[in-house]
Design a binder for these strands. Sequence first.
RNA 1: UCCUCUGUAGCUCAGUCGGUAGAGCAGUUGGCUGUUAACCAAUUGGUCGUAGGUUCGAGUCCUACCGGGGGAGCCA
Length: 503
Amino acid sequence: MNGRREDGKSPVFPFLPFMGKGAQRADRGGVYEIYKKRDKTMKEKTIKHILTLEGDGREVLVEGWIRTRRDSKEVSFIAVNDGSTMNSIQVVLERTFPGYDEINPRLVNGASVSIKGKLVPSLGKEQSAEVSPLEIKILGDASPEEYPLQKKRHSFEFLREIAHLRPRTNTFGSVMRVRNAMSFAIHKYFNDNGFVYVHTPIITGSDCEGAGEMFHVTNFDLNNIPRVEGKIDYTKDFFGKEASLTVSGQLNAEIYALALKNVYTFGPTFRAEKSNTSRHLAEFWMIEPEMAFCDITGNMDTAEHFIKYILRYVLDNCADDMNFFNSMIEKGIIENLEHIAASEFGRITYTDAVNELKKSGQKFEFPVEWGIDLQSEHEKFLTQEVYKKPVIVTDYPKDIKAFYMKLNDDGKTVRAMDVLVPRLGEIIGGSERENDYNKLLGRINDMGLNEKDYWWYLELRKYGSAPHSGFGLGFERLIQFVTGMQNIRDVIPFPRCVDTLDF
RNA sequence: UCCUCUGUAGCUCAGUCGGUAGAGCAGUUGGCUGUUAACCAAUUGGUCGUAGGUUCGAGUCCUACCGGGGGAGCCA
């Protein structure tokens, strides 16, 4: 085989369009040659691809799981789905098909099949082409009396209990395809914008990340923990010191930003907080850009530009899945995202936001006062009622924010920023970092932290310090925002939460 | 951790004033039709989360515990 398709058209090379013209030329001897030698790419075998073809009698191989079968007197209609798209392909099995009586009862919801057949025009209304089978192999049966997934709607709570099967549903298939597209878009955005992807560590020895409760990492025999004078002797542990799972890659990312200018991290993050809400996970994925020679304004610009880019990318590349969310999960979400991608985010200082909330006349469970942290109800009121779009709140009181945030000239506020979005509230937290050695040292001491723990962080301000900024974006929250899924446990393949560690 | 709602058939739910358990879907059987989460008919299926208590009698009222949802806090 020489890479030609049966229809005589050029073969499809899935990732060449993402490369620049120069890259395509340069690859003629490399990637291109490798692809040319392949009979069929994996992409060409997907139902998503087959559904784009014309029903001109060509032979196709359909491999997937049966979603439903409808029997008629003369024919059976089988919907096969392989997750490459939310759409299923229809296979029409004539009663005269050899072995019909033996095969047809096994073609049930959930069974996996490999069907060779001809792609022909459909007599039905909802598809232009369908498969007329030549050969049907049942690869894996699924007992109808036991298979938990039905054709009807299930509750998300039930599906969480069968997380090994839920990706076969429309909703979770769509969520995971969109999650994938967003992951790709994130890397593409940063790559195209001069950022270097830095792999910050998962295991950390610094308990100074300051973003929440940490999970401990130990190699001790827990039934026999070495102690000295009653206290745990960490010098005997694997790393010779206390170790944890990271709660943020930020401090490490700052190191690389102050060497490579623009960097980002995108990896798992762990918080041992006993948060029991629809917006929290114990293990989640976080995106943390960090930019040298960048102040809080540049930070806000990047955050806004980035979010709009991701929204635009999903709207342009995941139309089928987004239409599903739009009709089944959150009515009007497409219009909502289109609006957000096209409009300027609101920008307001904390001080102005407090005044705005006070004069709104709105009654809050927690009264608003300068100096308190904004509560969820305040954040949602700002973004949903006042602005009706995302809003960036900046310059918070220093006492309610982290030690590393840059102090403003007023001595009372820091250059922090939170991006608030409708439906969810806070989706991004970030700041310009304090780059003055003495001011940072002062903040560390003021907050009762041990400056020895921060020696390398302080040295970054001692040698070639530069203004720099960054933010953290919760990936799953962004997926919630894009898909309209209400519970964060339903936008990650296998959620980890308090008292939940299944699968 | 706190507040709140909830737990009934494989799934989604109803169950009145405390009177002894029901629907839709799924499954099974039959019928019908180029069907579109097909349709029509029949039918199987429940220790009402668990343990106590009140009562002649508890799915229903009370107590405790367990599971799940929503909200709050913490945060992304």
